[in-house]
């Protein structure tokens, strides 16, 4: 540890204390609050026993709706992001194209998904469609950046060769850029879906469909046990999605990336 590092750590530590003070974050309040959690937990345990068939039904259907929203939003957003990322890549587009496209994408990214959801609820009314639009926009802004960053790392050597044998820009994208970045692109898709299932679970808070609607409703009526049951369903689903995407990533991404490493030697 160098003295310079110590100074940096000292400054960051001081900033955390000052910022906490400014926003009134008091650790003592946290400790005082622990018994409250106990009370809630008691209620949860008490109420969770009267979870009936109807509630299970409702939880599963709304979770399925959530997954479908995430699925559609992820794929549509991803598909829209792809052409945008081609136009935003410095090695594929000219400055006059990639600079404005990047500004637009950065603008889209400034909104968290919940703000997009509010906007679309106002536009198209409450319901899953607003949620899908929100997820689509969020995915577009976020994944396009991941995509163009991977496309920019594609080796210039095959691109130069392709262009030297007279291949067109589109042919170059299809036959060089896509295969060379395929494993990254697939990995982004998995990552985004995984992340979007979590995000979509809370969009119901603003009326944009999905399981979040039930969670917020039960909390509003102090039915913490019921809210907890819905949250448990979200938790299990997210774990399952996570597990599946890890498996897929191992199977398809890790293997082909190992190939790239091999080729570098």
């Amino acid at each position: 540890m160098t003295p310079k590092n110590n100074i940096v750590i000292g400054i960051v530590g001081a900033l955390i204390v000052v910022a906490s003070w400014n926003v009134g974050a008091d650790p003592a309040e946290f400790v005082d609050g622990i018994p409250n959690l106990g009370i809630v937990m008691e209620e949860v345990v008490e109420e969770i026993s009267d979870v009936d068939e109807r509630m299970i039904d409702r939880a599963l259907w709304s979770m399925l709706e959530t997954i479908q929203m995430a699925f559609v939003g992820t794929f549509v957003g991803y598909a829209l992001a792809f052409p945008m990322s081609l136009l935003a890549s410095r090695n594929l587009a000219s400055k006059w194209v990639y600079v404005p496209i990047r500004i637009v994408l950065a603008g889209i990214r400034t909104f968290p998904s919940i703000l997009w959801a509010i906007l679309f609820v106002i536009m198209v009314g409450p319901g899953p469609f607003a949620g899908i639009l929100a997820i689509t926009m969020y995915t577009l802004g976020f994944v396009a950046k991941l995509q163009y960053e991977s496309m920019e790392t594609v080796d210039a050597d095959p691109m130069d060769a392709a262009s030297a044998i007279g291949m067109s820009k589109l042919q170059l994208i299809r036959h060089v850029v896509m295969p060379e970045s395929a494993s990254h692109l697939f990995s982004h898709l998995l990552y985004m879906f995984d992340y979007n299932v979590r995000q979509t679970s809370i969009l119901g808070l603003v009326g944009a469909g999905g399981i979040g609607f039930y969670i917020i409703t039960h909390i509003k009526f102090f039915q913490y046990g019921k809210a907890a049951f819905f949250m448990l369903v979200v938790l299990l689903t997210v774990l399952a999605v996570d597990l599946i995407s890890v498996k897929l990533r191992d199977r398809y991404v890790v293997k082909s990336q190992r190939g790239v490493v091999d080729a570098a030697h």
Binding site: D155, D157, P158, D160, A161, A162, A164, I165, G166, H175, V176, P179, E180, A182, S183, S256, G259, V260, A263
Partner: peptide, 21 residues
């Protein structure tokens, strides 16, 4: 000239192959 380039066979020193194809 681009249309002529298609018929100029080129084997670059660094080959320029697409590794993942």
């Amino acid at each position: 000239f681009r249309s002529k380039m298609a018929r100029i066979g080129y084997i670059p020193q660094s080959l320029g192959l697409v590794r993942n194809s």
